[in-house]
Amino acid sequence: MLHDTPVPIDTVSHGRTLPAEETLLSVRNLKKVYSTDGGDIEAVRDLTFDLGKNELTCLVGPSGSGKTTLLKCIAGLLAPTSGEVVLDGKVVTAPPKKMAVVFQEYGRSLFPWLRVADNVELPLKNAGVPKARRTELVEEALANVGLDHVPRSYPWQLSGGMQQRVAIARAIAYQPEVLLMDEPFAAVDAQTRADLEDLVRKVRKTLGLSVLFVTHDIDESVYLGERVIMLSSSPTVVQEDLVVDLPEERDQLETRSMPRFTELRHHVYEQIQLAKRGFRPDVAATK
């Protein structure tokens, strides 16, 4: 299949590392083992890759491939067993100020006792941002996600897609350099999902953020990402790191009907199938 494509797919079977000046976030030899009563579980074996400045990277992997574990380690919510995560030259040991996380369970991540604007404002209030500046940032963030008309609603009065927009607004109002998104659209319907995908691309372009987007959806990863990192099955290593050479302007209809989109999607799909069947680049390399 691969040799038939006129334009070769730019992919390597390990995580890419970048020169220091282009790197925002580095993951180095990250390993996470959970100790349970039933014995140790190796969720993540050895992950190394870099996230560039102003880059939108998607992480895909079969279910149970330790995606969430990896994301939590990067977010500073979980301590890795070994290896390290470096953001802007500083090793991450606790949730860093320059990072914001959007969780999959928007319904539980937003605080139901706070109205939309108060939810967005809370992290800023906690950080001691002055009131006037807070109001400004909240209004801006809500406008950016197209929710400036419902600041006084409670999140649970909104649809699922709108709730996830509130969570995104809360994240961008916090002014992070990196936005981590953990399968954020897995729980919304297909049309809302398409809208939210475009919203992520728009917001990233407007604000100049780096985004690490975890998903199990292959189409989504190719459509959204400038790079797709495919993970092996657990214990996780990088299966492949692929550059998405689609035009920067993405469009749900145009982009998705491009031959190149199909080729890339095909390639990622094959790799994930391989991963599911237990193919491991680390094992293949030693053979």
Partner: peptide, 19 residues
Amino acid sequence: VQTETSRSYGISGLNRVRY
């Protein structure tokens, strides 16, 4: 999930109790 949200936004200690 609420607790992780608090942690990821650096809301800890008394502020976490309050908010």
